[in-house]
Simulated assay, not measured.
Amino acid sequence: MPRTPGEVAESTDVDAVTDAVLSASRLLVAVSARSIAAVDEAITLAQFRLLVILNAVGATKHAALADQLGVNPSTASRMVDRLVAAGMVVRETNPASRREIVIELTAEGRRVVRQVTARRRKEIAKIVARMPESARVGLVDALLAFTDAGGESAITVAPDSAWS
């Protein structure tokens, strides 16, 4: 049964929580898409995720990057090709092993991550500020637990200051 805004749910029912997370994810995807489009309309959400991963972990081997993205290596390779052409990433020989190639962000790639993140943060802050204070109680813990359960904490929960 749909709730009205401001109505507090004490549900631990997996279906009810799943429905609420799906609704929130639609909003967050829309915020992300708007933030990316405002900075560079040519970048897809998946490509931006690749940039964020590289920004968080640094130069990465191709196979490891594909694994972190959850895509097959050929898909990751096509994404990297497009981002190389856009000047946002470079392929370089791994200094530790001359036979390996690593993918790394360029200054332009870091700029895009910073600008998109700043826009997204600003829009999310406006949304959170419109929430009743009572609804914000426990939200940080719940979202961090959700992120951790999804295996994303090591990549995307880096503080904004770590991305600059």
Rank of each mutant, 00 (worst) to 15 (best):
A24L: 05
V21R: 00
A33P: 01
L45S: 06
G87L: 11
A64H: 02
A46C: 04
Q47P: 06
D40Q: 02
F48K: 01
A33K: 08
E7G: 05
A30K: 12
S35F: 01
S11L: 10
A59E: 10
Q47K: 07
M88T: 06
T12Y: 14
D19P: 01
A9Q: 03
R78H: 15
A56E: 11
V21F: 00
A38H: 02
T75C: 09
Q47S: 11
A24E: 07
L50T: 08
L27C: 03
L69M: 12
T75Q: 15
A66M: 03
A86H: 07
R82H: 11
V57E: 06
A38G: 04
F48I: 00
K61C: 09
M79C: 13
L22P: 06
T18G: 10
I53K: 07
H62F: 06
D67M: 12
V17F: 00
A46W: 06
L50A: 04
I36G: 00
A37L: 05
R34W: 04
V71S: 05
A38I: 01
I43L: 04
V14E: 07
V17L: 02
L27E: 08
L83R: 02
I53H: 10
T60W: 03
L65K: 06
V14D: 06
L83Q: 12
D15E: 08
T75Y: 07
V14C: 03
I53F: 14
A66H: 02
F48Q: 01
L51P: 00
F48T: 00
V71G: 08
V17I: 06
G87M: 12
G70A: 03
R34K: 10
D67P: 06
R49Q: 11
D81V: 14
V57S: 04
S11E: 14
R34Q: 14
A56Q: 09
E41T: 14
K61L: 15
V31H: 02
R82G: 09
L51H: 00
E10Y: 11
D13K: 13
L22C: 12
L22F: 09
A16K: 04
R49D: 14
K61P: 11
G70N: 03
E10K: 10
L65V: 06
I43W: 00
S23E: 15
D19E: 07
R78L: 11
T60R: 05
V8T: 11
A37N: 11
T18W: 07
M79L: 13
I36R: 01
A86L: 08
A30N: 07
E41N: 04
P73S: 09
A9F: 01
E7K: 11
E10P: 05
S25C: 13
T75E: 11
A9I: 01
R82A: 10
V31Q: 08
V71M: 05
V8P: 05
L45P: 06
L54Q: 05
G70Q: 03
A86E: 07
V14P: 02
H62Q: 13
D67H: 08
M88E: 10
S77P: 12
A20D: 04
A46K: 13
A59P: 13
L54K: 05
L22W: 14
S74H: 15
K61S: 13
T12P: 07
D67N: 12
V8K: 12
